[in-house]
Design a protein around this nucleic acid. Structure first.
Lengths: 231, 231
DNA sequence: ATCACTCTATGCGCAACCGCAAACTTTTGA
DNA sequence: TCAAAAGTTTGCGGTTGCGCATAGAGTGAT
């Protein structure tokens, strides 16, 4: 009935140090589903019926502003939990999540969180660490937005993206999933115009190469310098 | 040896539904300390030797930017935990905390977190909920900074502050602790000049009354309207 | 193969807001 | 009591980067 093997998840860092029994226990009431780009996992304000773990692909998490615009908050990479509102005692999702890729997820019903956390306290501890990390990141984003200029913020998010979801080859490091100028603009509090202009300028300098929803960083050091000091 | 009574903490919402035994268990290895404004609880990057619970007063949490400026991240009110890096598996504090008030805190040694979380799982769950809430808030700050104008952001933070730390009397709602224009500027990604100008303008309209490190909101509805639509 | 659609590029004007400067007020402390 | 320090107010000029418009290029559907 449940054909999900623990070897599917054992290698992810968040499960490092977990015993076979713990992993099996975690996979007890799980099922796996494939989502295609264009579908939606869950929507902001919707009943938090499930929580998720991303095995393959990439998710985009967005939030609605008070005036109705949808803006990107973060990307989820393989090996991350997502939609863990149930673990936080919330009965509604605080954001919307949608795949930008062909993605494969594990899905647990919300009700299974509490027993799961009791059965495998190590998991609860890890999720708590993950939350702490995300809180950290969010605070750093706040500080960036509050103190840095648009070009630095954009340089920073590109570095972030290739760090977490980059694939490096001879010509540079590419962001593994499709991402538009608009997407970057939203996450950095700028406009697609500014992003477009900057990427063009950086392309001329040989720092990036970019196409339609595709970005390759060819000179990471130059970009890092750009993110740290006025050009 | 340990003269800290559970009635000191029982009334705080985070301990709602806790049994006397659980509360006693929580207070097992705690001590209480009084801090005066001007001192410091812990510093960003310092060894995370303890975690804290604020009984009375107010703390200001700040972070260092990459170029060395100190900027305010949040305020802690009575009834909140603080410096819970140990619970998040971090061995260094990610921010600096200092009282802005005469403040009284409970202090646990870092090492007591794990046994405590095991003894009182309900506490771990509540702390996790709190983290979720803070993550939410941080994301909302990000969105605000990315999409709204300076005046709206300032209106928003004032509403936030009086909501969480306001004392209402006949003439309006006052922020309970001393806060300068500079402090507000840092938290909203503006400058003290902009804040000063706006507060002056709002004072003329009868929306706020403010003095040196003191702010009273006299017309909350007008401020709320200001935070929602262009003036 | 063609059309519709989405994403990208770039120019130009303008407003918001920062940066700097200088004066004023309140509080603290010797 | 007086001086020093900290916080606030206000003016003015200069940039940043947004808003808007328009054109072009790449992609997917029928």
């Amino acid at each position: 009935m449940n054909d999900i093997n623990r070897t599917l998840i054992a290698h992810f860092p968040i499960f490092e140090g977990f015993s076979a029994e713990e992993l099996d226990s975690i996979l007890k009431s799980v099922r796996s589903v494939r989502y295609a780009s264009g579908q939606m996992l869950f929507e902001q304000g919707g009943q938090a019926h499930s929580f998720f773990f991303l095995l393959h692909g990439h998710l985009r998490v967005t939030k609605m502003t008070s005036d109705g615009k949808q803006i990107g908050v973060r990307y989820i990479n393989p090996g991350e939990f997502c939609g863990i509102a149930p673990a936080l005692g919330a009965d509604r999702y605080p954001a919307t999540a949608a795949p930008v890729d062909d993605s494969i997820l594990l899905i647990w019903p919300a009700a299974s969180w509490l027993p799961l956390a009791e059965r495998v306290p190590k998991l609860a501890a890890r999720v708590m660490q993950m939350l702490g990390g995300r809180l950290q990141e969010a605070h750093e984003r706040v500080i960036e937005l509050a103190t840095q200029t648009a070009d630095r913020r954009i340089a920073n998010i590109l570095l972030d993206l290739i760090e977490k979801s980059g694939r490096t080859d001879a010509s540079g490091t590419e962001i593994r999933f499709p991402i538009s100028r608009q997407d970057i603009a939203e996450m950095t509090g700028t406009t697609l115009h500014t992003v477009s202009r900057l990427l063009s300028a950086w392309e001329e300098k040989g720092i990036v190469k970019s196409g339609r929803r595709r970005i390759v960083i060819t000179d990471k050091d130059a970009l890092r310098k750009m993110s740290e000091s006025r050009e």
